[in-house]
Design a protein around this nucleic acid. Sequence first.
DNA 1: ATGTTTGTTGACAAACTCACTTAACTATTA
DNA 2: TAATAGTTAAGTGAGTTTGTCAACAAACAT
Lengths: 145, 145
Amino acid sequence: MKLSKKSEYGLRALLELTLAYEASSFVQRHDIAARQHIPIEFLEQILLALKRAGLLSSRRGMNGGYRLIKPPSLITLGQVIRILDGPLAPIGCVSRTAYQKCDDCPYAGQPSCPVQQAMGTVRDAIAGILDNYSLADFAAGARKP
Amino acid sequence: MKLSKKSEYGLRALLELTLAYEASSFVQRHDIAARQHIPIEFLEQILLALKRAGLLSSRRGMNGGYRLIKPPSLITLGQVIRILDGPLAPIGCVSRTAYQKCDDCPYAGQPSCPVQQAMGTVRDAIAGILDNYSLADFAAGARKP
DNA sequence: ATGTTTGTTGACAAACTCACTTAACTATTA
DNA sequence: TAATAGTTAAGTGAGTTTGTCAACAAACAT
């Protein structure tokens, strides 16, 4: 039930991009890395994955950097974590976005599988929170009053 | 956000012990292993951990095996998963049972840390479900009507 | 007592994942 | 063209997961 460093860094990086969104300015990887204490080369991989997934755009050369493509209110933590960490579901057989049937479970496929019932509830709770938690909400907690 | 095989096996093994609880009979590891398709030597480690944590008792020799120490209604999935997988919280800084402060987060310690806010909500949801989900509830889904 | 059944313990290891690092490459702009 | 900045593939060391193996200890039936 753990969030990887990759996702944590990803969220923190997107926080920086969210704060810069209104100015619609590009933020460079080394600025993000410095402000959020993220190893820069690892950060690149993360930003690249988010770019490939269609959340970011980038510009090369001087004054280049990364920028959000969509408003922060339209990007959810659920999307981000699925991109960087895979499905939210604790177990494959209850995932909606990446279902995989159990191979060894004696109740496999049956709707009466107790593991599926319990973990399905957990999945719904997690997805219910993270899919309704936008980057805008996320950043709101970060601004100093 | 994933449940390990260890925890999954553990829950499935406890399912067998729950079904045998009323008869207060001992169930042998190879019966559990066979019925639930769990590698027997791995299962041992799991049962041993659950025993050390005070959920099970065991008896050696003929007609030996494992048995629940407490009624299934008093054991929660949350307890089991914490024993086998560690804290439920997605990140150390929001764990109630195993708190650990972030080292690299620029908001570390501050109540306004956005990661902490979001993941705290998730933790509460997961714990709210799993700490109120007993083995009895769990097994109820398994009995054929 | 003896042998069989069963659980106990600890060491080990293959496979995989995580968290990065290295290094070469490509594109953009001043 | 020189400097800046992002792109990509590959590699790496540490740690975790998922087991396996072998020797051992206790309980029981006979």
